[in-house]
Design a protein around this nucleic acid. Structure first.
Lengths: 123, 123
DNA sequence: ACAACATATGAGCAACTGTTCATATAATGT
DNA sequence: ACATTATATGAACAGTTGCTCATATGTTGT
């Protein structure tokens, strides 16, 4: 028995098997907050409605009604999702009278989508 | 009034404002199934525990216990998440006696994480 | 001021998700 | 065979999510 129980982390019932690997990983990992933000960011893309909206906006800016028609969903659902995309700063909007046009607001979005597509098509 | 009601899509109460934009987007968008798969793929990264696991595995392969200790979570939670990552083919494992070592199983993972990090740090 | 229309938003609900707990499975050493 | 240890897994539960419905807000034309 090479390790005492006092060394194990409270919330895990197991003993650490290779401590140097754990401490090394702890050192090199981005800090907690960044990883939480990162998950929060990917969560935005983790819904097919939002992916479709973003995907549609690659072609052109569009108003809420047009997106709703395109995706065959009701206006309210689209509006709710656009709010989430707006809060995440992935889309921006401009008002023209009664109509609100949405468009992409991030140079990384296309890159990330394509990155994801590369994975999908590969496996 | 330029458009008849019969042209509007059933599930949207609004009229289509710019039909050519809608049909063009419909044409250029990846097909439904691919976008659904893509959302499914990003959903995997949309959880901080899974992001942390993946991030930890960048440094080295690790066993379940070590990951649990590193993240200060219990073994069961990690095991459940590893199953999801395994099913998504993002991690692979090898058994060595009682211990199961997990490691990354996709060349795109690092690229996607870094893509996300670029966005996080920029805004 | 009012009707018409595009969009936004709160409440409610059904479905989904992530964790915990208890327990099962698998491998090892005695 | 049995105890020990590492991992996996099913059930249960709380929290979250995405949609719908009803309604509010904002803009335009009359």
């Amino acid at each position: 028995m090479t390790r005492e129980n006092k060394d194990k982390v409270e919330s895990c019932a197991c003993n650490i098997i290779r401590e140097e690997v754990v401490t090394q990983a702890k050192e090199y990992m981005p800090q907690e907050e960044i990883l939480v933000d990162l998950a929060e960011f990917f969560k935005i893309f983790g819904d097919s409605t939002r992916i479709k909206i973003v995907s549609a906006l690659f072609t052109s800016e569009m108003c809420v009604c047009d997106i709703a028609a395109l995706l065959e969903m009701n206006q309210s659902a689209i509006s709710h999702q656009l709010r989430i995309l707006k809060q995440a700063r992935l889309v921006k909007y401009r008002r023209e009278g009664k109509v609100v046009y949405y468009s992409l607001d991030d140079e990384h979005v296309q890159q990330i989508i394509e990155c994801g597509l590369a994975h999908i098509k590969h496996k």
